[in-house]
Design a protein around this nucleic acid. Sequence first.
DNA 1: TTACTATATGCTCATTTACTCATATTAACT
DNA 2: AGTTAATATGAGTAAATGAGCATATAGTAA
Lengths: 112, 112
Amino acid sequence: MVEIFKALAEESRLRILSLLLENDMCVCEIENCLSLKQSNISRHLSNLKASGILESYKKAQWSYYKINNNFIQENQELWVYLEKRLKELPSYQEDYKKMKKCKSENICNCLI
Amino acid sequence: MVEIFKALAEESRLRILSLLLENDMCVCEIENCLSLKQSNISRHLSNLKASGILESYKKAQWSYYKINNNFIQENQELWVYLEKRLKELPSYQEDYKKMKKCKSENICNCLI
DNA sequence: TTACTATATGCTCATTTACTCATATTAACT
DNA sequence: AGTTAATATGAGTAAATGAGCATATAGTAA
């Protein structure tokens, strides 16, 4: 349990999770939406994956990250809480807009 | 939300919360149950209080800490999750036994 | 093959955090 | 007033963490 809370105890990681509520995303899309360095995002994603919150898959050169279904199953109350609260993050509206734009304009050439 | 997760991202603090599921406790009782230094416990308690998870009150020379009812109200799903998972901490059974012993023997002379 | 793109990772630096000791503060009791 | 007990806090230290740069790795495409 501590590992999960450690993963959740960082604002950038919460912002990443808030984007993944709606879509799977690749690293460069997240980079584009959150304006953080690529290496930084990659490490945050590794962290979230190591804690069991995310899983990943590859398509061509892109690594996609998504919410881990096992995590949702095994942490249902926490997940309900997160789904509600992630949308209340101060940066959520803006991040969400960028995500929509990024997806609709296929900014990374990585549309699934 | 980050502040709450930061407070929860530390094992000693989770152990403290697990003890407080059943009773309010004073600092020296917690010290007795968890075998941590008094200053250390005092700081963890301050941290949990600052994040809104605990509240405190004084009786004579003792400071009692308890789960903050507002926190429970405002974070219901998270609280349900915590109530379940705190009891699954590896140290829980042992900590719980010590808490029971501490309360029944009135080790700090601080029984309410 | 070579060049290019996306991602992961080694390294370093700065910041934060947890721990400890010593001391201050507060309350109770003689 | 002086002593004792409980708690909080200042200061120092060590460890963990996040950020950034440079580079390695892996997959694609020419």
